[in-house]
Amino acid sequence: MTAIVCMALTAAGLVIAVLRGVRGRFRSALRWGAVALVPVGLYLTGLITVFRRIGSALGSWGTHLVFDPKIWTGVVLLGVAVLVLLATGVGRGRRAPKAGKAEKPAAVPGGSVPAVAAKRQSAADLGDFSDIEEILKRRGI
């Protein structure tokens, strides 16, 4: 029965593709032809059976969700875990160091110049961008 439905859908899609092609809409015809091949491709690869099993498993889980206290306990535990993770700041970036604790600048490999000075030197090598900096400052960027 599944094979018949898939082949009928493919045939209908190919008919639409041919009609589009006759009318001069070749891109649309190619799209319809490609979409028309999907049902038979799914059937021949066995993915329709996989999707049916997944749907059946989800349906079974859904019916058990309503009546099974064990599943409700699991849902509550997952909710508590998410709340604790959100409350403790998972997903936030690293905080800036406190004002009292200043970090030493990192050294540039192969030299004793701090990394900040090396960045300034490389920025100076790129040329004068003072006009661009001025525009960005006026815009608040």
Rank of each mutant, 00 (worst) to 15 (best):
V35K: 09
P114Q: 05
V82T: 05
D125N: 10
V22W: 10
S56E: 09
L44E: 03
A36N: 10
G33P: 15
A123F: 07
I48Q: 01
I4N: 13
I71S: 08
L83Y: 12
A102P: 15
A34E: 11
K137F: 05
L42S: 08
S56N: 05
K98W: 09
V18T: 05
L77F: 12
G24T: 12
G93T: 06
G59K: 03
T10C: 01
K70M: 08
I132E: 01
P105A: 14
V116I: 06
F26R: 09
S56H: 07
L77V: 13
G62Y: 10
F51Q: 04
G100K: 12
I4F: 13
S122P: 01
S130I: 06
R23T: 08
R95N: 01
M1N: 10
A34N: 08
T45M: 03
V76P: 01
I48D: 01
S130P: 04
F51T: 04
M1F: 14
V116S: 04
P97L: 10
W32T: 11
I71T: 11
E133T: 08
V84P: 13
S56R: 05
L19W: 11
P109D: 00
V22A: 11
L14H: 08
R92Q: 06
S112K: 13
V116G: 03
V113F: 01
A57L: 00
A8P: 04
K137V: 06
L37A: 10
R95A: 05
S130M: 04
E134C: 12
L85Q: 11
I4L: 13
D68Q: 10
A123L: 10
V76W: 00
P109N: 00
L126K: 04
P114D: 02
A99W: 06
A118E: 06
F26T: 10
G62M: 12
L44W: 06
K137P: 02
P105S: 13
A102Q: 15
A81D: 14
M1P: 12
G79M: 03
F129Y: 15
R52A: 12
G100N: 12
L44Q: 14
I54Y: 02
G93S: 07
V40P: 00
I135Y: 11
V80S: 03
R92C: 03
L37P: 00
V38G: 03
V80L: 10
A3M: 14
A57N: 02
G24R: 09
I16N: 06
V50P: 00
E134W: 14
D125P: 03
I71C: 06
E134H: 14
G59H: 07
P69V: 11
V84K: 09
K98F: 08
W72P: 03
R27C: 09
V113N: 05
S60V: 14
G79C: 02
T88H: 07
V76I: 05
S112Q: 13
R120E: 12
A17K: 05
S60H: 15
L58Y: 07
I141W: 14
L85S: 10
G41T: 00
Q121S: 11
V82M: 07
I16T: 06
